[in-house]
Simulated scan of single mutants.
Amino acid sequence: MATSDDLTCSRRTVWQGGIGTLALLLAAGRSRPVPAAQQSWPDFLDQIAREARRLGISPATTRAALARAERLERVIELDRRQPEGQMSFADYIGRVIDANRVRRGQEMLETHRDLLEQIRFRFGVPNPTLVALWGLESSYGRSTGTWSVVSALATLAHDGRRSEFFRGELMAALQILDAGDVDLDELKGSWAGAMGQAQFMPSTYLRHAVDWDGDGQRDIWGSIPDVLASMSNLLARSGWRQGELWGREVQAPADLPAGRRDTVAAFAKAGVRDSEGGPLPNSDMPAVLLRMDGPGGRAFLTYHNFQVIKIWNRSDYFALSVGLLSDQLKAA
């Protein structure tokens, strides 16, 4: 178990600049490039290889990775079908939180109790929150994705919608390969390029992955200690506040608009009650009112830690699911 402030540093030399620094380096290294979507696939890969070389990634690593890169049309289709545009929150929550996921989460809390307590002491993130994230991201490590991360990221970088973001992630993935943190054959993940049991994007891995078990590798694919510590490190560094809730489900008067910002006490004066109809705490904690699925749907007051979860994934659906699953695990 690692205990020092060096936890986030691999024993290998890795690029630590983050996506913003990488974007600046890329911009400095080329002038008026042809937009990726207007390039042929081979020309696009050639440009990626040149950029990787300017960033110090070995040509051998780049050649090996890009030689097997394919443009995956299915990835483009999935990128255009995000859940908040395709299903109601009620449908989404019914799919992602079921009795089996709750039961498995309870088992993980018990099985890894000592490890979780050590990680909680170091980073301050509650065990149910951490396990809920693990469960929703990869079904507690059972579902980590089978897509080639390099092909998925290259496809999205070649597409015109968010080319610069995914180009940066592709460069980060090549850096991970170049550092020897994972073999190319094992670099699998989601269709969007999220990797391992933690489902980190490559730039997130470079900034936040932790070698908790002390074996010299930051292994978010096979090491549960590294997975859980890395996830907790990301939340802590994103501003997680110890001792505060993520939010709560509430009953809210119909005339209160979604998106209203106020203190919990002010919402109480406006007629907001807890989910059982009881009074809210007399608290000056800032909160935001969310209404899901319109006026007849579920309502929530969300706090600072909810926004921290959204740094992980910008979806309200996802962040609410983490909060609600963590509440169920805490209550068990």
Rank of each mutant, 00 (worst) to 15 (best):
Arg74His: 10
Arg74Asn: 12
Arg74Met: 09
Arg74Asp: 14
Arg74Trp: 02
Val75Phe: 03
Val75Leu: 04
Val75Glu: 00
Val75Ser: 00
Ile76Met: 09
Glu77Thr: 00
Leu78Arg: 06
Leu78Ala: 01
Leu78Phe: 03
Leu78Gln: 04
Leu78Ile: 00
Asp79Gly: 03
Asp79Phe: 00
Arg80Lys: 05
Arg80Ala: 05
Arg81Gly: 04
Arg81Ser: 11
Arg81Phe: 04
Arg81Lys: 13
Gln82Thr: 11
Gln82Trp: 04
Gln82Leu: 14
Pro83Ile: 02
Pro83Gly: 00
Pro83Gln: 02
Pro83Asn: 02
Glu84Cys: 00
Glu84His: 00
Gly85Tyr: 12
Gly85Ala: 10
Gly85Cys: 01
Gly85Thr: 12
Gln86Phe: 03
Gln86Pro: 00
Met87Thr: 09
Ser88Tyr: 05
Ser88Leu: 10
Phe89Thr: 00
Phe89Cys: 01
Ala90His: 12
Asp91Gly: 05
Tyr92Gly: 01
Tyr92Phe: 01
Ile93Lys: 05
Arg95Ile: 14
Arg95Pro: 06
Val96Leu: 11
Val96Tyr: 05
Val96Phe: 06
Ile97Asn: 01
Ile97Tyr: 00
Asp98Trp: 06
Asp98Gln: 08
Ala99Thr: 12
Ala99Asn: 13
Asn100Cys: 08
Asn100Phe: 07
Arg103Met: 09
Arg103His: 11
Arg103Asn: 12
Arg104Tyr: 09
Arg104Asn: 12
Arg104Ile: 11
Arg104Ala: 14
Gly105Cys: 11
Gly105Trp: 11
Gln106Trp: 04
Gln106Thr: 06
Gln106Phe: 04
Gln106Glu: 08
Glu107Phe: 10
Glu107Ala: 15
Leu109Gly: 09
Glu110Asp: 07
Glu110Phe: 09
Glu110Gln: 15
Glu110Val: 15
Thr111Trp: 04
Thr111Ala: 14
Thr111Met: 08
His112Pro: 10
His112Trp: 11
His112Asp: 12
His112Cys: 09
His112Gly: 10
Arg113Ser: 14
Arg113Lys: 13
Arg113Asn: 13
Asp114Asn: 08
Asp114Met: 07
Leu115Arg: 00
Glu117Thr: 13
Glu117Asp: 14
Gln118Glu: 14
Gln118Gly: 13
Ile119Phe: 03
Arg120Gln: 15
Phe121Val: 13
Phe121Tyr: 07
Arg122His: 09
Arg122Asn: 02
Arg122Phe: 02
Arg122Met: 03
Phe123Lys: 01
Phe123Gln: 12
Gly124Tyr: 03
Gly124Val: 08
Val125Ser: 10
Pro126Cys: 06
Pro126Met: 08
Pro126Trp: 06
Asn127Gly: 07
Asn127Tyr: 02
Asn127Arg: 12
Asn127Ser: 14
Asn127Trp: 04
Pro128Thr: 02
Pro128Asp: 05
Thr129Ile: 15
Leu130Val: 02
Leu130Asn: 08
Leu130Thr: 11
Leu130Ala: 07
Val131Asn: 10
Val131Gln: 09
Val131Cys: 12
Val131His: 06
Ala132Gly: 05
Ala132Val: 09
Leu133Phe: 06
Leu133Asp: 04
Trp134Val: 11
Trp134Tyr: 07
Trp134His: 06
Trp134Glu: 05
Gly135Ser: 06
Leu136Arg: 00
Leu136Ser: 03
Leu136Val: 00
Glu137Pro: 01
Ser138Gly: 05
Ser138Ala: 03
Ser138Trp: 08
Ser138His: 07
Tyr140Asp: 04
Tyr140Arg: 10
Gly141Phe: 09
Arg142Asn: 15
Arg142Ile: 02
Arg142Gln: 15
Arg142Leu: 08
Arg142Met: 09
